[in-house]
Design a protein around this nucleic acid. Structure first.
Lengths: 202, 202
DNA sequence: TAATAATATTGAACACTGTTTAAAAAAGCA
DNA sequence: TGCTTTTTTAAACAGTGTTCAATATTATTA
């Protein structure tokens, strides 16, 4: 069955080739400014043929969306070795912010662009839910260690996510230019440390 | 000169009529799904004629963008009577969140959609900058009253804006469905109160 | 090897988009 | 009334996502 195998490989190669071209354009121009004809041109292909490998434009987007989540989760994974849950929690925020800084376009694709993410059953959302439970578990552990007692676990988790996302979302939309004299990175990192200071006093 | 006057009025009326139609579609479908032909059809007009009153689609968007800011600032204005800066600060966040809840589409247009807001000199940004200085002033007052001493004013202001925006942005993108058993409103309000609790302990 | 069947690719077509523009209509003025 | 300015329109242009019949390529079978 050598040929069937090769066929499959060729199909996967084409799949990857399209995805590579799409990634380049998507991360360069964003969702709307990326067209099927653009992608096709990038890899010297015909626009119609892409539909042989992907249902539609949104399916390509989804694969990149998922790619971004895997990248982020991979970077968070190294924090598993941090024993103290509060230290791990604080570090998670820093890693998250760093991810947004280094992967602005992915971050946009993952958390801000909403074109085709409407179906809540998509894989991206599943991963997102897992991430949230992970966060909630971490907060819960902190509470068992005597931190954030008198706080509702769920609401407090939501707050932490909001803080970090808020910091990153403003950055990704270039909305922090109004703070003059400070770079985006300074704002984000020190803004987050202000929050950490609040947590530490709690 | 009665006719010139009437002419001007007629022009303003047409301007308003287009804007009304555009508002309906924009807030219904968002930026990308709104087309000039859609707007024209809504008010029984020809697509091309819109360009007699607006430079392009983005200019229509900008007027609505500004509209949203004026609406928000109007709601914040009632808090001027609150003397204590810390109380005013806390209430501002609540008003902001409430605005996002009640005007989800405006919020999207104002803070999330980024199509034509690229030029930082737009009126929307000017208003945004004013809002930020206003916030910073409030934080500064709090510090003079002995709150948030040992915090950098600018970074701390950035944090507060991030918190509130983060809460609202997640809501506007329907990203909080992952917290089951709690309504969006509960999450937002109680999440914010968790933050207030942190502030109060500081 | 030749004929047939399955797979992969293409370019044209469809209905849509924002925007421009020449022509036509309407209104104001002499 | 004729003339000019303002307003409106439909058609056109170049772009979009997507579909599809025709074609080319490859694999299987006789």
């Amino acid at each position: 069955m050598g040929i069937a195998e090769r066929k499959l490989e060729e199909k996967q190669e084409m799949h990857k080739r399209i995805l590579d071209g799409a990634r380049k354009i998507f991360l360069q121009k964003g969702y709307d400014q990326t067209s099927m004809r653009n992608i096709a041109q990038e890899i010297n292909y015909s626009p119609g043929s892409i539909y042989f490998y992907f249902k539609d434009k949104s399916e390509i987007f989804h694969e990149l969306h998922k790619e971004g989540f895997l990248l982020l989760l991979n970077q968070l994974k190294v924090l598993q070795k941090v024993r103290d849950p509060f230290e791990r929690l604080k570090a998670s925020g820093r890693v998250f912010i760093q991810f947004a800084q280094e992967n602005k376009d992915y971050y946009n694709l993952m958390f801000i662009v909403d074109e085709p993410v409407k179906n809540s059953l998509s894989e991206g959302f599943q991963i997102a839910e897992e991430a949230i439970s992970y966060m909630q578990e971490m907060v819960s552990e902190c509470q068992q260690n005597g931190k954030f007692t008198n706080m509702d676990t769920e609401y407090f988790t939501f707050l932490i996510i909001s803080v970090v996302h808020g910091i990153c979302a403003l950055f990704c939309k270039n909305r922090n230019t109004s703070f003059i004299g400070k770079t985006d990175e300074e704002l984000m990192e020190n803004g987050y440390e202000s929050f950490v200071a609040l947590l530490e006093k709690s």
